[in-house]
Design a protein around this nucleic acid. Structure first.
Length: 477
DNA sequence: AAAAAAC
């Protein structure tokens, strides 16, 4: 079920309603079930265009109502054009939606199911890490809509349990992410199985040259829909930075969560091990936490996400598996335990808060080692982020780091504040470095910039080159 | 330096 609150119309502007799009009564009924009346801007733009059968290149962050923007008109199109297949037994898939992560696929599938619940259309979600049998059974029984991650879908293709020869509509959700993750060959393989004549919808949070190239080769005369300026951060998200010593980061996160009384927060770690460690540390500190990352089983990942949505867990410690697409209602705060390696990921991570008009906080920890990453991020978002002092937090002195439980577990509540001057804590006068306050000046774009990028992110650059080479060999549409 | 995705 979608948790994305849909926008209320601008005062004074004519209020567009879902009823105005000519959607079938069964779809409107499903929307009414959820209390949705007014489309968000991207929905208002995308729905008519998709209904016309046009290809779409959509630049939209998650939280803009993008999923409904494509799934509602797709459902309508499938209802309007009854399957031409003489033999329903062959059950060709009519619409295919591809996503980069399993969780995103699952979530899109929940939305599609909700919007199509009063229609005869059937859908199934297909991704790895879970038993293949139920997916196979659903595919054999027949579905009109498949939502999938590329790998498992190709697995089904090999098993001949899925028929893509009649697929009229293809959606590539989070296309930039799919490129980052090296899905291009898989995408190519899947697209080769589809009919040449079809409708293509591609969504991407960013408009990189690679994405434009992908759009050029996959889309036919697309309508471009751009809702938020790409690479911009929502201005309803308050971003702050706290400088912390490396060894004090875990305590700092616990402190921030306690101090602010956070009850629902995602903390991003750059590594799977880091995420697990931080999660355990928070648990020890009495904070209900769980980690979600690629080394967890799919069952653990789903359980963590569900517990977080239900409120049984207050802190979800995640790698970038959760950086994009996860739709969690009104997340008030996101914490970057590590600054991300790629500046773009910063935008995606903090996009988890301040959704659909609500305000949010994005808190990032940084150390001396993060200067370059920070500079890259501020260059991308085109402004500086406020450096603040972490009030009341006194990091444990590394020289005197004895076990902090000697006084018994009862004193854990507020221990950081109350333990000044004893058990290894000491107040420290902190001064703001002058460079903190320097206004951001964009560096002149030059060839040396490229060279710097090469030096700082060899992996990312190599990956980009690989994608570029693959894209170069693709046909122009 | 990392993460994600099929078995």
């Amino acid at each position: 079920m979608s948790h994305t609150p849909l926008a209320t119309p601008q005062t004074g502007a004519p209020a567009v309603r879902f009823e105005d799009f000519g959607l079938s009564a069964d779809i409107l009924r499903a929307l009414a079930d959820q209390g949705y009346v007014h489309p968000t801007p991207i929905q208002a733009e995308a729905i008519p265009v998709v209904l016309q059968g046009r290809d779409v290149m959509g630049a939209a962050q998650t939280g803009t109502g993008k999923t409904a923007g494509f799934s509602l008109p797709i459902i309508q199109l499938l209802l309007a054009h009854a399957s031409t297949s003489a033999s329903p037994a062959r059950h060709p898939v009519r619409a295919l939606i591809l996503t980069p992560t399993r969780e995103l696929a699952d979530q899109v599938a929940d939305n599609v199911k909700a919007y199509s619940r009063h229609t005869p259309l059937r859908s199934v979600v297909v991704f790895g890490g879970v038993d293949m049998a139920p997916q196979t059974a659903a595919l054999r029984a027949g579905v009109e809509i498949v939502i999938a991650t590329p790998g498992r879908l190709l697995d089904h293709v090999q098993q001949k349990t899925v028929n893509l020869s009649q697929t009229q509509i293809l959606v590539m959700d989070e296309a930039d992410r799919m490129l980052d993750m090296g899905f291009l060959p898989d995408l190519q393989r899947i697209i080769n199985l589809l009919p040449k004549e079809r409708q293509n919808l591609m969504f991407s949070a960013t408009f990189s040259p690679e994405i434009k190239k992908l759009a050029n080769s996959f889309l036919k005369n697309p309508v471009t829909i751009e809702v938020a300026r790409s690479n911009a951060t929502a201005d309803n998200v308050t971003q702050v930075l706290y400088k912390v010593e490396e060894e004090a980061k875990r305590d700092a996160v616990a402190h921030i969560i306690r101090e602010r009384g956070l009850k629902q927060v995602i903390v991003f770690s750059n590594t799977k091990i880091g995420a697990s460690r931080l999660s355990r540390h928070l648990e020890k500190e009495g904070v209900k936490a769980a980690a979600i990352h690629g080394d967890k089983t799919q069952a653990e990942r789903m359980a963590a996400l569900e517990a977080f949505k239900q409120g049984g867990i207050e802190v979800l410690v995640a790698t970038d598996v959760a950086a994009r697409g996860l739709d969690i209602a009104e997340l008030p705060c996101v914490i970057n335990f590590d600054l991300p390696y790629n500046a773009e990921d910063y935008v995606h991570r903090i996009g988890r808060t301040g959704r659909a008009g609500a305000s949010g906080d994005a808190i990032s920890l940084f150390t001396d080692k993060d200067a370059r990453q920070l500079a890259d991020i501020e260059k991308l978002i085109k402004h500086t982020i406020s450096r603040l002092q972490l009030s009341g937090f006194v990091p444990p002195r590394s020289a005197d780091r004895r076990p902090r439980h000697e006084g018994g577990s009862e004193e854990r509540q507020g221990a950081v504040r109350s333990s000044y001057g004893r058990s290894g804590y000491a107040p420290r006068k902190e001064k703001v470095d002058p460079w903190f306050l320097k206004p951001y000046e964009p560096a002149p774009q030059s060839a040396s910039d490229e060279a710097r990028e090469d030096a700082s992110q060899p992996g990312a650059t190599k990956q980009k080159a690989k994608v570029a080479a693959l894209l170069g060999g693709m046909p122009k549409r």
